[in-house]
């Protein structure tokens, strides 16, 4: 009897296939899941997810945390790509807020570069026209 295993991260699919047994570093300790396990939902700690395939060989994947969902014949590992901790997340949130405040406070950065470039091109053209007129007058 086998179960289907999907290991995915937000950025890419890591593994998809069948297995006879899977081991994962759950928050309360490492757990092994065989087919027909009861539905389970848990967080993962950083560590190794090991998948035993039909042939008896074992593949292992490192996850830096994430979630594990178990259905009787399907196991899904939602792996994190980043190290997640409350204080790190908090610091990043603060950074995003600061960026917003900076954006609103910064009066000089209001210039839209595309618009500025268009205006520059226009004034250069005007200057050229004036120069030409002058040349004609001097002649």
């Amino acid at each position: 009897m086998t179960l289907h295993v999907d290991i995915v991260s937000a950025e890419t699919e890591i593994f998809s296939g069948t297995a006879t047994m899977i081991f994962a570093p759950a928050e309360m300790g490492e757990i092994g899941i065989a087919p027909r396990h009861a539905p389970l939902l848990t967080r993962l700690k950083p560590g190794e997810v090991r998948v035993q395939t039909d042939g008896g060989d074992e593949q292992s994947f490192f996850v830096s945390g994430g979630m594990l969902e178990v259905q009787p014949h399907v196991v899904t590992v939602l792996a994190d790509t980043a190290i997640r901790a409350a204080d790190i997340d908090e610091a990043q949130a603060l950074e995003a807020k600061e960026r917003a405040e900076k954006l609103l406070a910064d009066k000089t950065a209001d210039i839209d570069y595309a618009k500025a470039q268009a205006e520059l091109a226009q004034s250069i053209a005007q200057l050229r026209a004036i120069q030409k007129l002058r040349e004609k007058v001097h002649r």
Binding site: E11, D89, E90, A93, L94, K97
Partner: peptide
């Protein structure tokens, strides 16, 4: 405007979004 993020590039990574979404 309460939070912003920019210059994520052509291959944005989720790490750069965590903060702004958390706000």
């Amino acid at each position: 405007v309460v939070s912003t993020a920019s210059h994520l590039g052509d291959a944005p990574s989720i790490i750069e979004l965590i903060g702004t979404v958390k706000v």
